[in-house]
Design a protein around this nucleic acid. Sequence first.
DNA 1: ATAGGGTTAG
Length: 462
Amino acid sequence: MYYRFDNVDDAFNLFNKMIQSYPKPSIVEFTKLLAAIVRMKHYAITVSMCSQMELLGVYWDVYSLSILVNCFCQLGQIDLGFPVLGNMLKLGVEPYVVTLSALINGWVKGIRPDIVSYNILIDAHYKDGKIFEVIDTVDTMKKQGIEPDVVTYIILVDVHCREGMVSEAKDDVGTMIKQGIEPDVVTYNILVDAHCREGMVSEAEDIVDAIIKHNIEPNVVTYSALINCHCLQNKMYKARKVFQLMIKKGCAPDIFSYNIMINGYCEAKRIDEEMELFHEISQKGPILDIVTHNTLMQVTCSFLSNGLCKCDKLEEALEVFQAMRNSKLELDIVCYNILIDGLCKSGRDCQMKHTCCLGAWEKMIQGFLRNSYTSKATLVPKEMIGTFTFTFSSLGWLFPAQSFTCQKLKQMAGLNQQLEQVVLYRSVNGMLCSILLLWHSFKPSLVDDRVFLGVSTFDKFS
DNA sequence: ATAGGGTTAG
């Protein structure tokens, strides 16, 4: 049985029931719940739950550990995350030294890594840009008598594709087949996408034709990659054609396909068609997500640089932003960057900036409180850099490192005297991550670690 | 029950 939730709150409620029940549910039950939350891409919440489970003395197994480790990887917290894992497992080892290799090297109490553990680690190394480690881990795995499977090969194919080595990626697929591992639609999707990115459109189309002949049905990802390919070349009529073909073949467009189309129309400055499509999804399509909204904000903000209709366009972007704040959508770093960029371009309207800062503040505090990272916040020191106060905090868990955002904020702070303080956060491993803008209504004297330590201090602001 | 693919800012 799987869990499926419409929103995180329901999952959260169930989790709270589970940790209060007696006898306490088995790790299997917890794992099913965690898996459901991971499917909703709420990695930080999952980590937080794992940490509470540890306090309850739940026994970990290779499945639950894989989920946890994967969350760290998805959060881009490879260096930071694994020590926490080590700590959680009470290995009694110095923090910052232990990594997932603890699991791989068999240091973790009797839990043997399986093919999934290895694939997660291989993928994590790859996403971290450590290609040597990718190869190394594959070797280690083989030495342990675990042979690469289709997922392992897919990562290797992806490595070659992202390095622009498309023909090498094709060779990988040949090797797979020789090893008796049948490439699946995911494998071919990577190849199709890679060819599109290299501008080899007809080759991409040939691959799709070839896989159909091999009785592999293209799926929504295959079609989306092709659609995106045409969009990137500004050939919207072709994109539309594939979009319609997909529907005709009984493959329902998902939010990705719609977002790709909408973005394509935006880039082509065909706003009418973009809005038409937007209304189409609003009525009968999948639920609009953060990317859809961000794209809408982006298209209005893109007018700002042309020096056209400055204020009303920014007003439009702010309306979208407001709608997002009122929704259950979790605002992300791209959202803030688009808005901050728009604010910079549009001059220095205080009211607008106020809206932006307040939003950033509220969302971060909400996320922070819900994820209950209070204990992590106490672990970290504080330092001053330049004219800004950099405070170390666990807010980095909410947003990954973004130096661009920080630059924009500095620019903005310089422009606006009323902005009393810009506080930039760094995660423990020293990477710039989230931003918090403190508006003048918040007393600067409260700008210290206490601000982040929980509800009691938060009350002072609300 | 866990792992892999397609979208938005710079």
